[in-house]
Amino acid sequence: MLSRIVKLPTNRRVLPGTANVSGQTKNSTVDQQQITNFNELKTNWWIEDGIMKPLHSLNKIRVPFVRDGLINTGLVHKQFVNTPQPLKNLQLLEVGCGGGILTEPLARLGCTITGIDAASDLINLAKEHKKQDPRLTCIHYNFDTVENHALTHAGKYDGVVASEVIEHVNDKDVFLKSCVACLKPKGSIFLTTLNQTMLTWIFGIIVSENVLRIVPKGAHEWDKLMQPHRLQKLLEDNGCRTRVIHGMFYNFLTNNWSWISDTSVSYAIHAIKN
């Protein structure tokens, strides 16, 4: 339900409706229609029980997922485990960072993090919001796409995070290739997304967007969702070995996320670059 990647030169900005055409522009995995949708959400982005409520509460499990993933692969020095800054000295890239809901907590854990997004309004919002906490000096936000970013930052990062992003991307192969290119060898990539099943179609899209209204209308397109084994295959093709896949469950009554073994609605993947 988040935002995304490639910057379109402003003179090529495409009108809504012709979005699919624009999405297939050279080098771009971005769907311009969705970018327009996301830019419109900026006013409520940081309100914890607003339209982005599920993404705020998702932090409760996805931050530990990234943190413990990095710890378990041995990238974190033992002396930093169980301290306030376990990710000290690590370089992270967040692709599709939006307004910075996930970027800020990761930055507080001590890493240097670059957040990129193809929605300019959201990047500006993120830049504005980080000023509220003086400790967030190690965040760099860029209005950029991962394809473009990979050109100049290949092999630079210990970890790449793309949470709730890949389901909005047009060309997933190019997207993943670029993400992986940014990683150092043995670096970790963390993805969370929706599965492509009947259940997601009913609950993830129809019910969430129209009945419960916990997800903005038009945020997800079923055709763009991906099954875990296909995503795993894509990661493998791009030189990554999957370490874990967890299912995620959202209780909309209590606004709580929890890990489950069943991946049929949404799931998280942690893979390591060979």
Binding site: N59, K60, V63, P84, P86, P105, L106, R108, L109, D133
Partner: peptide, 12 residues
């Protein structure tokens, strides 16, 4: 909360 990068004293 702190180990998950949240600022201290958040109402949740």
């Amino acid at each position: 909360a702190v180990y998950s990068g949240r600022s201290l004293g958040q109402i949740t």
